[in-house]
Amino acid sequence: MNAWRKSTYSNPGGNCVEVRDGRRATDVRDTRHRGAGHLSFSRAEWAALVRTARR
């Protein structure tokens, strides 16, 4: 499992998410509430989300 990383688009107030890539899934968590857990997306789900967000 890779380390958590924050978007370069994050603002200084910390209103963002962190992402880490695993073998089978990409995990996403709220930077301000790291202890609340994370969501996991399959590679296909994550790729679809990123494609949609870029549009």
Results as ranks from 00 to 15, higher is better:
N11H: 08
A25K: 10
R29F: 00
A36Q: 12
K6L: 08
S10E: 08
W46V: 08
D21K: 09
S10M: 04
R29M: 01
D27F: 07
G37Y: 03
S40M: 12
N15Q: 10
R34Q: 11
V28R: 00
A48I: 14
T52M: 09
L39N: 03
W46Y: 04
A53K: 03
R55T: 15
L49K: 04
E18D: 06
S7K: 10
G35F: 05
N11W: 04
L49C: 09
V50T: 12
H33L: 12
A53D: 05
A44M: 12
Y9H: 13
G14H: 05
A53M: 13
G37E: 03
A47F: 09
R34N: 07
T31M: 03
W4C: 00
T31I: 09
A36Y: 10
R20T: 00
T8P: 03
N2E: 15
V17R: 02
R5L: 04
R34V: 12
S7C: 05
Y9K: 09
A47D: 15
C16P: 00
V28S: 01
R51N: 12
L49E: 08
V17H: 01
R55V: 15
V19T: 06
S40L: 10
A48Q: 12
N11V: 09
N11D: 14
T8C: 04
V28K: 02
R55H: 10
S42N: 10
D30Q: 07
R24C: 06
N15Y: 08
A48P: 06
R51K: 11
L39Y: 00
T31P: 00
A25N: 07
C16W: 00
G13W: 07
T8K: 06
A44G: 12
H38Q: 14
R5I: 10
N15S: 10
A47H: 11
A53N: 03
N11Y: 04
T31A: 11
R54W: 05
T8H: 02
P12D: 07
A36R: 13
P12N: 10
G35W: 06
G13L: 13
S7Q: 12
A48E: 15
G22Y: 04
Y9N: 08
R32W: 01
G13A: 14
T8Q: 06
G35K: 11
L49S: 06
E45M: 09
K6P: 00
T8N: 09
G35L: 08
H33A: 11
V28T: 02
A48N: 11
A53I: 15
D27A: 13
W4H: 01
V17Q: 05
R54T: 14
G13R: 08
R43Y: 01
T8W: 02
G22A: 07
R32F: 00
F41P: 03
V19A: 01
Y9S: 02
R23S: 04
G22H: 02
D30R: 05
K6G: 02
V17K: 05
Y9Q: 10
S40Q: 13
R34I: 09
Y9W: 13
A3W: 15
